[in-house]
Simulated assay, not measured.
Amino acid sequence: MEKLMFIETGMGIDVHGQDITKAAVRAIKNAIHFNSMPGIRSVLPGNSLDNMVVNVKLAVPCDKDKLDIDTVKEAIPFGKVSVEVMDGGMLTTSGIVIEEKGDKNDKMYIVVASVEVGY
Results as ranks from 00 to 15, higher is better:
M1T: 08
E2W: 13
E2D: 13
K3C: 10
K3S: 10
L4G: 00
M5H: 13
F6G: 05
F6D: 07
I7K: 11
I7Y: 08
I7P: 00
I7M: 09
E8N: 10
G10H: 00
G10D: 02
M11G: 02
M11I: 14
G12S: 01
I13D: 05
I13R: 13
I13C: 08
D14C: 06
D14G: 01
V15G: 02
H16K: 03
G17C: 05
Q18F: 04
Q18Y: 03
D19K: 03
D19I: 00
T21G: 01
K22E: 04
A23K: 02
A24R: 00
V25H: 05
V25Y: 04
R26K: 15
A27I: 10
A27E: 03
I28R: 00
I28F: 06
N30D: 15
N30S: 13
A31K: 02
A31T: 00
A31D: 02
I32N: 01
H33S: 15
H33K: 15
F34S: 12
N35V: 13
S36D: 13
S36G: 12
S36F: 10
M37V: 07
M37C: 11
G39T: 07
G39C: 03
G39P: 03
R41S: 13
S42I: 09
S42H: 15
V43Y: 08
L44N: 02
L44T: 00
P45E: 14
G46S: 04
G46A: 02
L49P: 06
D50T: 11
N51C: 02
N51W: 13
N51L: 06
V53K: 15
V54I: 05
N55V: 11
L58R: 05
L58M: 06
A59C: 09
P61N: 03
P61T: 03
D63F: 11
D63Y: 13
D63Q: 13
D65S: 10
D65K: 08
K66W: 05
K66C: 09
L67E: 00
D70Q: 14
D70V: 07
T71C: 12
T71Q: 15
T71N: 14
T71L: 15
V72E: 05
K73T: 00
E74R: 15
I76K: 05
I76W: 10
P77V: 03
F78A: 14
V81P: 02
V81R: 01
V83G: 04
V85E: 01
M86Y: 12
D87S: 09
G88R: 14
G89T: 07
M90P: 01
L91F: 06
L91R: 07
L91Q: 04
T92R: 07
T92Q: 05
T92P: 04
T93G: 09
T93R: 11
T93M: 10
S94R: 10
S94E: 11
S94F: 09
I96F: 12
I98D: 14
E99I: 10
E100H: 11
G102W: 08
G102I: 07
G102Q: 07
K104S: 09
N105K: 13
N105F: 10
N105S: 14
N105C: 14
K107V: 07
K107G: 05
M108C: 11
Y109A: 02
Y109Q: 05
Y109M: 12
I110C: 07
V111W: 00
V111L: 04
V112P: 03
V112D: 12
S114K: 04
V115L: 01
E116K: 07
E116P: 01
E116D: 07
E116I: 01
E116Y: 06
V117H: 04
V117L: 15
G118H: 08
Y119A: 14
